[in-house]
């Protein structure tokens, strides 16, 4: 089937297999390898992308379901060489080790700060709580999100 959607701000069209997940189509048909897969059951959050600005799990959604919608992947965050403030915050605060969970964590943070620019610690834990990181122990992820909130606020002033 013909899929038409807005992908990282650009209108894209592709012929896709109707039974493929959004995760597979992003990685294989659009060659956007930044979105990762692990559990393929919507639990771990490695495949988090934004659908019309809201975080969803790309592994448990058919690409067909995103017809006409807007998707943001991790590739859509930086502008050229300039990292998104949320990306900068993660790099500066050791918010990643192996990096596999990072795209999902970044997109979830972007969505959180869009909804709630000054989240409390509890609100961060609640929002990011479902996304799994096996390396960091989460302390530096929490620190990164808090730093990101400050950076995003600064950037919007």
């Amino acid at each position: 089937m013909q899929l038409e959607l807005t992908l990282n701000g650009k209108t894209e069209r592709r012929e896709i297999a109707p039974h493929h997940t959004l995760l597979d189509v992003l990685r294989d048909d659009f060659n956007l390898k930044g979105t990762k897969g692990y559990c393929h059951s919507g639990v771990c959050g490695a495949c988090t992308v934004l659908l019309d600005g809201k975080p969803i799990s790309a592994c448990i959604m058919l690409a067909s379901q995103t017809q006409g919608k807007s998707i943001t992947t991790v590739e859509g965050l930086a502008e050229g060489e300039n990292l998104h403030p949320v990306q900068r915050a993660f790099v500066e605060n050791f918010g990643l080790q192996c990096g596999y969970c990072t795209p999902g964590m970044l997109l979830l943070t972007v969505a959180l700060l869009e909804e709630n620019p000054e989240p409390s610690k509890e609100e961060i834990v609640d929002y990011l709580g479902g996304n799994i990181c096996r390396c960091t122990g989460y302390a530096n992820i929490l620190k990164s999100v808090q730093a990101a909130a400050a950076l995003v606020k600064e950037a919007s002033l």
């Binding site: 919507g42 959050g45 988090t48 659908l51 809201k54 975080p55 969803i56 799990s57 448990i60 959604m61 979830l108 609640d126 929002y127 709580g129 479902g130 996304n131």
Partner: peptide
């Protein structure tokens, strides 16, 4: 219900 990603979809 589950996490925010699931609740959005």
């Amino acid at each position: 219900v589950a996490g925010v990603r699931v609740r959005n979809a």
